[in-house]
Amino acid sequence: MRKNKSMIFWFCLPAVLSLLIMFVYPVCRTVLMSFFQVESVTSGVGEWRFNGLANYIKIFGSQTFRISMKNMLLIWLVGGVITLALAMLMAVVITSGIRGKKFFRAAIYMPNIISAVALATMWIQYIFNYDYGLLNSVVRLLGGDKVKWLGSDMKFWAMTAAFIFGSVGYYMLIYISGIEGIPQDLYEAATIDGAGQIKKFTRITMPLLTGVIRTSITFWSINTTSFFLWTKMFSPIDTEEYTIVPVVYLYDIVFGGKGVATRDAGAGAAVGVVLTLIIIAVYLIVNRLIKKSDLEY
């Protein structure tokens, strides 16, 4: 028995050490760094100068940071509602016994296996293209004037729409696996009792999926706070106000953008801490609002 315990210790040691060195240490260092004036991420601690809450005051006083937070919130809220609703709708339709279930499931999930860079390029250079883009071809076919889908008024929503397209399949799969875990007996009994599709969805599917919905909201929140690549693709040369999100703001102040030589790793750390706190807050709120189902099946 003792032998086994030491075995467990030695086998766990590499994983624990990796966790401590590669996760716990950077987290602690980042939190600490957020209270210091630090120019470079890798500056030695000896070069740090205590800054109190100045980094937090700086970022919350920054118009660019506030805009980035607003953009992130909109992606989270509007994008989240649309993505999760579409994913749920498609999951319900696909699990309802339609023909070609496997095809539709694969087709809707497809954007997730395509590189996000390729996907974003397709949206930017083809679908939204002003001269020969898919959307403007449709608009012209209907007799309308060409629209600047990537103009300053529309760029944010164009980016969000493209992101939603790339995300729906992932959440749909999560919902499908949740729905398929619900015993068919319940649906059969409901059918015998005369329940229609909508009633079955609201009285059986939704209540039994609360755990899955809660998880998907947490996943969506994490995806939104780490939103980076789509912004970089929709503003390729330098960061733009219409597409900026906090992680890109963080990136710019830590590494310096185009033509910018100043860097502020302390403020960047503060942004990181704020984002982490937001995810924790969302997780706690979602757990409080969406109670774990006490139904057993």
């Binding site: 006083g61 920054s62 118009q63 660019t64 940071f65 805009i67 600047k148 103009g151 300053s152 330098d238 960061t239 733009e240 106000e241 219409y242 900026i244 703001y249 710019d252 102040i253 953008g257 185009k258 033509g259 910018v260 100043t262 502020d264």
Partner: peptide, 28 residues
């Protein structure tokens, strides 16, 4: 002359400058 260093110097304003400059060419 630099690559926009005067308007890029302040991280808090640079993206707003860029947007307003772009809107100028959009005829806003």
């Amino acid at each position: 002359a630099s690559w926009c260093s005067a308007i890029n110097a302040d991280e808090n304003l640079k993206t707003s400058f860029k947007s307003i400059f772009n809107e100028l060419y959009e005829g806003k």
